[in-house]
C-alpha cells in the first residue's frame, strides 16, 4: 500500500469534513467523528454535488445537501435514497496528528 499524506487531524473541524483537491483525480473528503478520521470521495454518487461543501455530518452519516441522499462515511454504504451507488472509501492511517490514506488500493 502506498500511503499519501492528506492533512493534519486538526485541519478538520470536529464532526465535519475537509475537502481535499488533488491533481489527477476527483476531490476527496476527510471526515472527523470524535477522534476517528475517514476518507471518502467528495462527490456524491447520485448528483454532481460536493459532500463537504453542501452536506451535513450527523454521527457517521453524511447527508448530501442537494438531493438529501446519505452515506455512512465508515464504509461508504448508501443509507438513504436517491443514492444507489456506494461512496468510495479509502483506508486511513494516522501517525501522530497526520492523516494518510491509501488512494490506489481499494
Amino acid at each position: 500500500m502506498t500511503w499519501t499524506r492528506l492533512c493534519s487531524i486538526s485541519d478538520i473541524s470536529e464532526d465535519d469534513g475537509l475537502r481535499i483537491d488533488r491533481d489527477g483525480r476527483g476531490p476527496l473528503a476527510a471526515w472527523r467523528v470524535g477522534d476517528a478520521v475517514f476518507v471518502t470521495d467528495d462527490t456524491c454518487t447520485h448528483g454532481q454535488a460536493s459532500l463537504t461543501e453542501g452536506g451535513i455530518l450527523d454521527g457517521f452519516q453524511i447527508e448530501c445537501g442537494l438531493h438529501l441522499g446519505a452515506f455512512d462515511v465508515r464504509d461508504g454504504k448508501v443509507t438513504s435514497a436517491p443514492c444507489t451507488i456506494p461512496l468510495r472509501v479509502y483506508p486511513v492511517r494516522i501517525e501522530a496528528d497526520e492523516v494518510f490514506a491509501a488512494l490506489n488500493d481499494t
Binding site: S50, G55, I56, G65
Partner: peptide, 10 residues
C-alpha cells in the same frame, strides 16, 4: 453556497 442552503433548510 450549498452549506448555507443546507443549514437554512434545517
Amino acid at each position: 453556497n450549498p452549506k448555507l442552503a443546507t443549514l437554512a433548510r434545517r
